[in-house]
Design a protein around this nucleic acid. Sequence first.
DNA 1: AGCTCTTCCTGAAAGC
DNA 2: TGCTTTCAGGAAGAGC
Length: 303
Amino acid sequence: MPELPEVETVVRGLRSSLPGSMIDEVRFGKTDFVDDPILISERVPGLKIAGVTRLGKFICIGLDPVSASPETSAGQCLIIHLGMTGQLTVAQSSDPVQSHTHVFFALDDGRELRYRDIRRFGRMLTIPASELAAFKSLLGKEPLEIEAEEFCEHFGSRRARLKALLLDQSVLCGIGNIYADESLFRARLHPTRIAEKLKKEQLLALRAAVREVLEEAILFRGSSVSDYRDSEGKRGNFQLKHRVYKRDGKPCVQCKAIIRRMIVAGRGTHFCPTCQPAGRVRRAAKKSMKPKVRADKAKNKKS
DNA sequence: AGCTCTTCCTGAAAGC
DNA sequence: TGCTTTCAGGAAGAGC
């Protein structure tokens, strides 16, 4: 599934081939993942692609009017989230169309920017360029940009589990299930540990692990599990470097213990029980000779 | 505040 | 062999 390294790889590919081209026409197949297809059809054709950037897991295609008359500030941003199975590729318009391709942006040079999404968990919308800052402000910090102090403030004050926080796009943007698990392994932290209870050095280790994993994954052009492909339709290679993700039942690369899988924050979560020891286990559950009574007492106390 | 559950969707894999 | 069921998960919303 596309997370920060995969989206970054796609963005770099698009950036090298799209800017300067004009979008002539937009055609849609299914549109249930598009905020407002009519608006896109109205606003986008006739605009020139100025640049391609990444915001967390979002791809942002900057579109400018061709004749830059001062009063038409009709610059737009086409924003695309790949969800689980989204693919954004550039093809010749004569190339065969793969199944599940739902949006076609015909360019003025005979090429097409195509959006394919098997499960349609992606999202597509257009906003005026002037609203980009507001859109950005809804997202958390970029994990490759956040400073150490800021990271410690954001995480150190939260009572949530580390895994849940890493997945929360309003805290850090761009991390998904793969890189959350891989980062926690490298930081030697158990996914269910409570962020607030970490020592500063552990928070710093987590920040460093996140950066290291993401940077390495970008070098390998992302991880191709399931359907990920870059803008040329090619696979990434970082899946070969995963140390815990989808490796449950296999020996830990570090200590040979068996990698385990559990559900945390509703997601399949992979970890090494030895390298990533759990935090203090709450005592309550253990010596519960009279669990019912205890539970009731606790309830009465509150009310 | 933060947790779980549900919804969206398809194809792969497991179960019968 | 072939059908049916289960599962995976990013994000948002409901409800606790």
